[in-house]
Design a binder for these strands. Structure first.
Lengths: 311, 311
DNA sequence: TCCATTCTCTGACTAAAGTCAGAGAATGGA
DNA sequence: TCCATTCTCTGACTTTAGTCAGAGAATGGA
């Protein structure tokens, strides 16, 4: 059930909001594509088995998976998941054993028959794509793939959420770690955190500072932080975006949100320093209104210092 | 459950088939859109009511609908539909009465409360689109709308089916009627079927001829016909595509299928005549390999005659 | 008038997709 | 050792999305 464009009600004239025709296009897409594709897909992949079971079979994967990981990934009730596994086990497609690392945990693995069934599902998914593509010309196929990629990427961009996080949390740690790894790879002389100006976890925790995490469907895909000072400029730190979501405006959004929060904390100026190798980051800062200024600290890995008024 | 790209199996080297990466893109899209967008949509529109009921509420619409029309449109079992209506009736949202035209038939109408509930659904669908669009920049929104439109149109193109039909059937009649209407509008002097060279229904019915219908999700969107002659060229007739699906290669597909069937019936040549006003049709024929030839009949409304070898 | 067809509804039922409660085992920190 | 927490499983159950059978009323054509 997808209500189509509700064309009887004009959109409020909000310059920051989406226009009527864009909203209508999204609604039309929701109706036409989401539902139809879903029904077609379900029909294609069912194979006489409940979809929940088929889905689980696929998610267990060729390497197996812990039940709790499956529970969390598929967002299923422990009881229901147990039942689905029982059913697949009964059909000889799955084997469930206690994990060696923690005997409370079960690990599910596909049997030989389970792997064969999964391969059939794989083929079926290919066939489904084939039925969609076959009636089209070569040019139409390329255009469809390109448009689908664009829709998908923009829906991802839309789904990215920003939230404050404690720098000690695993997700935050992972992002900062990825940031440091990338710096080590891209700087000509490498990067060692110990040689850089130290920033403690407390400094990025309210009220002294703040770390923002960007997540896509719960998965961390970026971070950025603020060091706040009384009567002095706020410092932007730890700006990193996962390569998987670059080009989608996430960095810009993160930076804008950091600026907002800095201003809300009373800061009138934001500052940051960066290495000359990070050309895309520098371009982002410039286009966001940062001007290059004389060095304001002695960070060994920096060659450029930027500042922006926050009014 | 959406299997993602099954990247371990190389695609057969079939130049006419879709490439591996296009198939993978379609599979990724199916996964991303169907599951995520579908689930989000259901959550948004549920409002504590089963989706089937919400869907029915929407489909009844502001003007009401016959139960049998709803049954056919939504492809629901008569018993189940009756139950859904009962439930909505119990909630005071729907009124069901015998139709004046045929007392076997029931007409369902929304009550005042039903109309209010429908308006809420309308608003919710807007809000759903809004949540998708709001995190995006203006440029991203425009790009998303454009990409969605492209995906939708190409999926429509993909979903179009060609099938033989009896020219007397309502769908065929509707297409031929639309064709004649368009000719009447576009020809400078108008068009009257009676002044044109007559083609009887039997002439477009096997074995004397053939009519092909193009349908999109069961709805007729185009037609084309053949008149077959022993030891003489086959004639292409009644080529019409609905404006809603023009530009998607449907005409080309129809024409190609007619040629195939003509060749399969032993014809070595295909012929057609057309009015000079139909510039897109002429362009299609030319690009499909038809050459202009001297007039081979005295069709009063034609100014161009074309021919193509079918080997 | 008869009869085949169409339509809606009710009875009876099923399968799938879950939820909630709670028991028992395992883990790790105080 | 104790205890809070985590994990899985089983019991019991519900809701949703339907299906199939068949009855009774209405329609239209022979």
């Amino acid at each position: 059930m997808d209500p189509e464009a509700g064309g009887t009600r004009p959109r409020a004239d909000d310059p920051a909001g989406p226009s009527r025709e864009v909203v209508d296009q999204v609604r039309r897409f929701n109706r036409a594509v989401t539902q139809r594709a879903g029904a077609l897909q379900d029909a294609f992949l069912a194979r006489g088995r409940p979809l929940g079971e088929a889905r689980l079979l696929w998610e267990i994967g060729p390497d197996g998976a812990d039940v709790r990981a499956l529970r969390s990934r598929l967002e299923l009730d422990s009881g229901y998941l147990s039942r689905l596994l029982r059913s697949l086990q009964h059909d000889g497609l799955v084997r469930v054993e206690p994990s060696a690392a923690d005997r409370r945990v079960r690990t599910a693995r596909l049997t030989k028959a389970g792997l064969a069934e999964r391969a059939i599902l794989d083929r079926r998914a290919d066939e489904l794509a084939g039925t969609i593509l076959r009636p089209l010309t070569g040019g139409q196929r390329a255009r469809l793939a390109s448009a689908m990629s664009e829709v998908q990427r923009l829906l991802d961009a839309s789904a990215i959420r920003l939230r404050p996080a404690d720098p000690r949390q695993p997700d935050a740690r992972a992002c900062i770690g990825a940031y440091f790894s990338e710096l080590a790879q891209r700087f000509p002389g490498g990067f060692e955190p110990a040689r850089s100006t130290q920033v403690g976890d407390d400094e990025l925790t309210p009220p002294a500072g703040l770390l923002l995490l960007a997540t896509l469907h719960g998965r961390p895909v970026g971070c950025g932080a603020l060091k706040l000072h009384q009567d002095a400029p706020a410092e932007v730190k730890r700006m990193w975006i996962s390569p998987a979501v670059r080009g989608l405006g996430v960095g810009r959004r993160l930076l804008a949100e950091l600026e907002r929060r800095a201003a809300a904390s009373g800061a009138t100026t934001a500052r940051l320093e960066t290495n000359g190798t990070l050309t895309e980051a520098i371009a982002l800062y410039r286009s966001a209104g940062y001007r290059e200024v004389p060095a304001f600290n002695d960070e060994p890995y920096a060659q450029h210092w930027f500042e922006k008024g926050l009014s």
